[in-house]
């Protein structure tokens, strides 16, 4: 017995075990209600964080199929992201002379972002997303216009996607699947929301960049299918997915991330072969869809700013 420290009770206590509320097949594995070429509805608004020089919020609707169940725990998660841009601001005194804008990106999951609590220390997936986001944005910013300055882009994931169907979570395992598909939708959202925030901050960009995701999914008792904007909890299995950062007016790609089991090019003669090239084309299509929303959101906030500056 250690007398110099506070000891626990002599008789050990067992942690409480709660019965799972996710029993039963309330949400089937394959409940995608959208068309294969239909992306989720997007909400974008800029200028929400007054202390930042630019900010934006992005939300993707949750899939409506599970709304019939009133339980909060059964809700399919939506994707909610906020992005703040700080700067351009002076570099720290220790930094060497830089003739152009130094970009640093951070992606952080809120502790409550997913069903499993996230820690405060950046983990590998957050650093990975930040690195991908940085490559995507670096090709868009006109850095030469801001010498000797740095800009920080911080994306906070308020609600992230689950990697697997809900019943697999209820069973307490990942359903034997490889996780990480949800990260692709998150990266696509990060790219779009960061683009909105950077534009809001008034930093020169060559174009608006938007993210798009396409995937090859396996539905129960159906052949492999190509879908835009997959929500991982909607599908039984995702075979391959691709996320892209696309500049529409220049027809350029600054970020491409694909994973899964996929052939590089088509061999058959079908119109949409299940190959990498088709996947990229579809991801571009998804990015173009997101761009239309982004343009409208930016126009709206620009008009509001012009009005307020005319009054003030």
């Amino acid at each position: 017995m250690d007398r110099r420290r506070v000891n626990g009770p002599a008789g050990g206590t067992a942690p409480p075990v709660y019965a799972s509320t996710l029993t039963g097949k309330t949400a089937s594995a394959a409940n995608r209600t959208r068309q294969p070429n239909e992306i989720r509805k997007i909400f974008v608004k800029t200028g929400l964080t007054p202390s930042a020089s630019g900010s934006a919020y992005l939300e993707l609707e949750s899939s409506p199929a599970t709304h019939h169940s009133k339980s909060l725990t059964n809700r399919t998660p939506a994707l909610k992201l906020t992005c703040t841009v700080h700067g351009p601001r002076p570099l720290p005194r220790s930094a060497p002379f830089s003739p152009q804008l130094l970009l640093s990106t951070r992606v952080k999951f809120a502790p409550f972002a997913a069903r499993q609590r996230r820690g405060y220390i950046p983990d590998a997936s957050e650093k990975d997303l930040a690195a991908h986001l940085e490559t995507a944005l670096r090709g868009v910013l006109i850095g030469e216009r801001w010498p000797k300055s740095g800009v920080d882009v911080v994306v906070t994931v308020l609600e992230g996607e689950e990697d697997c169907p809900l019943e697999a979570l209820a069973e307490g395992n990942q359903g034997g699947r490889i996780g990480g598909w949800g990260l692709m939708s998150i990266l696509s959202g990060c790219i779009t929301v960061a683009s909105a925030a950077v534009t809001d901050a008034g930093i020169d960009c060559v174009d608006l960049i938007t993210g798009g995701v396409a995937a090859i999914v396996r539905q129960p008792s159906a052949p492999l299918q190509l879908v835009l904007d997959p929500c991982p909890s909607d599908h039984e299995e995702i075979v391959a997915a691709c996320v892209i950062g696309y500049l529409q007016s220049r027809d350029e790609v600054t970020e491409l991330w694909a994973k899964g089991n996929i052939s590089p090019s088509s061999s058959g003669k079908e119109t949409k072969p299940l190959c990498f090239e088709t996947l990229v084309d579809l991801a571009v299509e998804a990015a173009n869809g997101a761009r239309r929303v982004l343009v409208e959101a930016i126009k709206e906030s620009t008009e509001a700013k012009l009005e307020s500056s005319a009054v003030g």
Binding site: G54, D200, G202
Partner: peptide
Amino acid sequence: SILPSATH
């Protein structure tokens, strides 16, 4: 360029 943010 215009004001950084409408909420400023």
